[in-house]
């Protein structure tokens, strides 16, 4: 149906509308990759992250920091406190233009 595209249904479509000024260095870091692999079967961060930053690649966690909204959910929600979370360098990261 026409019009559905501009309703930004998928997360990719939503993220496409957001402005990011990416740093070359990640402000997010998995502290111990082994914890994700061996201790964390549910990998909740791959579900609740509102920007799909975390993607499990079978044996390791891919962290797409470039699309991060800097909300802090992953740091608080990781059951193993396994995410090192900092703010991106001044002026970098997400740039909200509207709300």
């Amino acid at each position: 149906m026409e019009g559905d595209e501009i309703m930004a249904k998928t997360i990719e479509e939503k993220q496409y509308l957001v402005r990011f000024r990416c740093d070359t260095k990640s402000h997010l870091e998995v502290k111990d990759e082994n914890v994700c692999l061996t201790s964390c079967p549910d990998k909740d961060c791959t579900i609740f992250c509102p920007a799909d930053v975390y993607k499990w690649e079978g044996d390791r966690m891919h962290v797409g920091f470039e699309g991060c909204h800097e909300c802090g959910s992953c740091r608080i929600g990781c059951p193993y406190d396994n995410i090192k979370w900092e703010y991106p360098k001044g002026g970098h990261g997400i740039v909200f233009r509207l709300a």
Partner: peptide, 14 residues
């Protein structure tokens, strides 16, 4: 209420 609306920005926050 949203019919015909065009998403302009998506935002997440705590």
């Amino acid at each position: 209420y949203l019919e015909g609306g065009e998403t302009a920005e998506y935002l997440a926050h705590l």
